[in-house]
Structures are given as C-alpha cells and as structure tokens.
Design a protein around this nucleic acid. Sequence first.
DNA 1: TATAATTTGTCCGTATGTATA
DNA 2: TTATACATACGGACAAATTAT
Lengths: 238, 238
Amino acid sequence: MTHKYQSISLEIEQKIMNGHYNNTGNKLPTEEDLVNEYGVSRNTIRKAIDTLVKKGFIMPVQGSGMFIRDVSMKNSNAINLENFRGLTADYQYSKIETKLLEFQEVKATKKIAEIMQCNVGDDLYFINRLRIIDGKKWVVEYSYYNKQYIPFLNKEIINNSIYNYIQQALKKQIGYVDRIIEAGPLNEKDAKLLGLEVGDPALISTNKSMFKSGEIFDYSIDVHNYKYTKFLKLSNLL
Amino acid sequence: MTHKYQSISLEIEQKIMNGHYNNTGNKLPTEEDLVNEYGVSRNTIRKAIDTLVKKGFIMPVQGSGMFIRDVSMKNSNAINLENFRGLTADYQYSKIETKLLEFQEVKATKKIAEIMQCNVGDDLYFINRLRIIDGKKWVVEYSYYNKQYIPFLNKEIINNSIYNYIQQALKKQIGYVDRIIEAGPLNEKDAKLLGLEVGDPALISTNKSMFKSGEIFDYSIDVHNYKYTKFLKLSNLL
DNA sequence: TATAATTTGTCCGTATGTATA
DNA sequence: TTATACATACGGACAAATTAT
C-alpha cells in the first residue's frame, strides 16, 4: 500500500525540512541524480516531486533546477490548506487539549441529509468540542459523523484524533475534503468559549469529508479564534 | 506554447460546465475512450485529467470511473482557491467596478523589501483600490508592484485587470501565488469603504505573486467584505 | 460466493521539445 | 552556441479496486 513515489516524496520532504539541501543553493538534486539515488525511473521521481510542488515545498524551473521555496510563510504557523489532516496532525508538536461539550446520537434533518447525501432520519453522531492549543482557546468544532460509515465513537477517541481513528482502526482512506472559508461575527456561545466578545470576528471553516470512494462521512463547522488561526494556500498556476 | 494536455483539459472542463456529461451518470468517459476520442496517449489523457482533479472538478475511483464532483459547493459563488486568477477572471460574468483611491510610486521600505525580496529603496508602484461587484462593495485592495518587473502601469490598466496586462502585454507567466487567509476586525477606513462598521469582521488575504521563474512581482493585502466573499478549497488527499 | 471483465493506479523506458545557464 | 535540466508525449506491462457475470 506504500508506493515508491510516496516514500521518495516523504523522504525528500523530510530532507527539505531538515535543511539537508541548504548548502546546495536551496536546490534539489537534478532529476537524473534523483533517478540514480533512488534507483527508479524518471517518471517516478517526477511523480514524487509533483506532490511536493502541490504542497508548495518546491518550485521547479525549466532549464535551471528545482528550488526549495522560501519557508518564511510556512513558518508563520499558519495551517497549510494543502496539508490539512486535522488539528492533531497539524499541531503535532504542541499540546492539544480537547473539551468535549456535547456528544450524542441524532437523526439527520432534511438540511443535514442533503449536505451529507444521506437519508432523512439516518443515524449520526453529533459532537461539539472546544480545542485548546498550548493553553490557547483555538477553535470550537461542531461535527456530524454518519454512523453508517463511522459505526462507533467514544469519548476517548473523540478526545484524541477522530481522523487517526478512521484511518488506523477503521482502515478507511480519507480521499477528499471540501472546505468553505469565510469570516463572520461571533455569537454569544462561541465568543464565551473562545474568550472573546460577541460580534468579534471569527474565521469559519465549513467542511465536508469524503472517503476515497466518495461517501461523505463528516460534515463540520469550525469556528476559529481569529487571533490564532491562519490558513496558508500555496498555489502553483502551472 | 499550448500543449495537448492543456487544450484537452480545457475542453473537458468546459464540457463538465456545460453539463455535457450529465446523462452519463455524471461520469467521464473511460481513459481508453478519451485516448481514442482525442487521439493521444493514455499518459497525456491522465495528465489532462490531473489538472481537473487538482481543481476539484472530478474524482477518479480506481476500478470504477471518473466521477464529476458535486457542484453544490462550487455554486455557492465562493472563489475556488485552486482557480484564482484575480477578481476579473473569477467574476467574469458579473459587473466589476473599480474605484482607484491611490496610485503612486514609492520606495521599498525595509519591511516590504524583505517580503518582496528586493532591495530597500527599490521603485514600487503602490495601488489602493475598492472593487465593487454587481453594485456590492466587495474588497479593498492594497498592492505593491515591483517596477523592475512591471515597468509601466497606468490608470486604464489598473481599472481593468493588472493580471491580464501582465500576461498579455508583458507576456509574463504567473507561476506561483502564496496566500495567507485570516479574519480580523475592520479599521475605520476599510469599514467606511465597505459600508460596514468599525470592528466588524473582515476576511483578509495577504498575497505574494511570483513569475514562473520565481521573482516576486506583487505583494498585496485584500480586505474582503465578510458578507460576500467566501473561499472554496477542494482538497484531494490522495 | 467466486471469477472474469472493466477501469484506474503505478512503474518502466525512450524520444524530443524548450527554457536556462 | 552548447550543454544542462525540466517538460511534453509516446508506448507498454502489470497491479489493485470495482463491477458485472
């Protein structure tokens, strides 16, 4: 299940992060060198590189080489939208606390059923959590999980990473995440939870998560503390 | 300069938008069919498809087919972060007005020089615009352009699309855009311009644009009216 | 339930084009 | 001008997931 291009991509990414290429003019070895180093075809190297380009780590310039992109923005502790795999993965070097505010089974309303492409009345888990990172009240999350795909959840799983549970215990591959990002005024409840004032700005992300095979298993609304959360989008238009 | 995979990708994208595949179960033809239809190799078809997957238009499922993704979120008139090529391109079917508030040449300060990777004192254009879409005060833009790369700008260009000018008149290819997205309270000036109240939420995007060859030609801050602007991010984690 | 056919995914090799140094 | 290095495009073989039989 782990392919050549995946492990090569990961290894190069780690080398970039380690500063392994800092003394080579912030350039990666040429494709030919990588072909020899890893003993694979040029296509495979290019596929490995592709994912790093997508993530915004490198900038290939035809005729010149593959340059490691400036990490100043990456270091601004913004969440890279290309990398996003849940708070637990994104802030793996920080202390994450979770306050479980609500956890219950509910039936899909017409509106939710439409969004999650399930039937009205289907069983869902509803979860409301406050996430605290390094002592800072970071985000209030409202999530619905389709019980048809996530048949069991408990407080322990919820207090850790639901995404890890899905991937490791359920052995399901998360394929797609659709996310709408907007700003809006905080309501009383969220303001109180985040330690802010009513009407203060919030960075709101509304998300739909799908398995590789397309089924929507999660719909969630994340109300972020505007003082902490930033999203980073590294686009390449080529 | 236009490659096979590019024109094929564009054609398929237009067919998706036209609803051309609606009666085929929202599925694209198989790769083999596309190979025959366009008379190119399978690799070329896959490369064309790749860009559409990246843009979030289609969801390939191994063994099953390539499904056109639900456009409900796309139709929420949010700006697709994967597509972004400036307001003029994104809202090509809307009426865009531009109020030029400030346009002058300035010298790069230490802070700006660091961001734009140029020298302190380098010549820059500074532009402050209010953009009105379909009569709605949409966004206040503060932009710096490096004169070294964009040697000439005038009011006419500014009132239309600077990006179009760069690509068509200067024949430069835009390669990368780094963008940080956050929320924050409106200051007095921006609130007034957007017809909102001081302290109201704003969706703020801070951008760095680079040519294909890496030079930073633009640094800008966009203060969006939270009532109108939404960003859409369609991720595939595969 | 098991098998075969279909369809996308990975990987290889090669040749030629194009931008940069 | 020449060499370097990435980009495009072709072709083929086999693997893996899904669907149909």
